[in-house]
Nucleic acid binder design. Structure first.
Lengths: 211, 211
DNA sequence: GCGTTGCGAAACTTTGCCGTATCGAAAAAC
DNA sequence: GTTTTTCGATACGGCAAAGTTTCGCAACGC
């Protein structure tokens, strides 16, 4: 009405400050953190409640509703924080890149917050397809495409077999590391030896048969 | 609807019949079936509701509460039905057995009821460790051990590489087929070509590199 | 037929969350 | 100082889901 409602600045930098107490960046960060934690602990987004987030973040519900109008938006914003950068696809032997990828995936597979994405993306597909699609678009799809490009280039350079089945090869890479971390996590607290990625890459590339 | 409800006694225990209408074995079976179906569709046991089970089974809620005092008891009873037999480990080339195993796992991975075990075993570990452990004991563990024995024998006969990393190899077999079925299910309704197990076995054994 | 028990449907009760509103205090700009 | 906005906390009505009880009817032994 009187003031410009467009200037709802996300933070209290300079420029047209709307006057009044600025929004606490600390609270916002706490909300995001709590959201990620709680998503990691739950298996579906339906289980996630604003009240629980507010309680975990030590924040009033008002503070959440003032920033995000829906749970969906909050979840998307929170998951956007998880985007870990992917290394670009440049020159180099295939094996090195595979090890790099396995290293990243193996590290992410242990992180509760990254695992939650897997849970949601794989299990909640028919519950809220639209949201799941948004999440997959920003998290899984780029990795899938990067891996596919990596494998295709390996075939072109002759480092990989010419009759490679791309879906199967991708499932081999992703499925193996995921399952390995999962099953290893069952037994103990999760101490895996250092060169996991190297040994995984070795077995994936060379297979199970003798040389 | 006259006398179609065969209320044959659920058990053969003669002796002191409590008098009155006997419990319907048909209803009990329907409840178990509905429970298995719904567990398969859900990702956690908290999502499972007696009401949904009753509706799916075409049964009144009282009929369920009369038999099982808690949801947990019902789940345990229901999962006890799932025990599917494993083929014994006999003579034969490793590849044939691997194909057989992949065939079984690939088929089970599509079955809703088998998937539910995976969901619960992997996601609900810290929610109800006791129940999860019971489930793993009767479902996952025997398969794990069978696969481990299979791989070990392959190493002994020289069909597999001598420096095989058993946990990694197992993750390769299980993880690949699981992930492949999962990701294939994303794209389409799930029509996978006929020789999936063969092609999976090929890639797993030979790896990604050229011969 | 009679008493007893099981059956499914529907009503009742509880629970948990949502979204909003209100309150006193706090943090900035003026 | 005053003004304005946000802060955390709490309370409220509403709603939807799930557990519990009620009820009329059906099936069994006697």
């Amino acid at each position: 009405m009187t003031s410009t409602d467009e200037t709802t600045g996300t933070d209290g930098t300079r420029a047209g400050r709307p006057a009044g107490r600025p929004r606490s960046a600390k609270a916002e960060k706490a909300i995001i953190e709590a959201t990620l934690d709680l998503i990691g602990e739950s298996t579906s987004l339906a289980e996630l409640s604003i009240e629980a987030i507010a309680a975990r973040a030590g924040v009033g519900k008002t503070t959440i509703y003032r920033r995000w109008s829906s749970k969906e938006d909050l979840v998307v914003d929170a998951l956007a924080v998880l985007k870990s950068p992917l290394p670009p696809l440049e020159e180099g032997p295939f094996r090195d890149w595979l090890v790099t990828y396995l290293e990243i995936m193996q590290r992410e597979a242990r992180d509760v917050r990254s695992r939650c994405v897997m849970n949601i993306a794989m299990n909640g597909y028919d519950r809220d397809p639209r949201l799941v699609e948004r999440i997959r678009q920003v998290t899984i799809k780029p990795r899938q495409e990067a891996l596919a490009a990596l494998l295709r280039r390996g075939v072109e350079t002759g480092e990989l077999r010419a009759d490679l089945d791309l879906p199967i090869a991708m499932a081999m890479v992703v499925g193996t590391v995921m399952w390995y971390v999962k099953s290893a996590g069952f037994g103990e607290g999760g101490q895996l030896s250092e060169n996991v990625a190297e040994r995984l890459a070795d077995h994936i590339m060379a297979g199970l048969v003798p040389r």
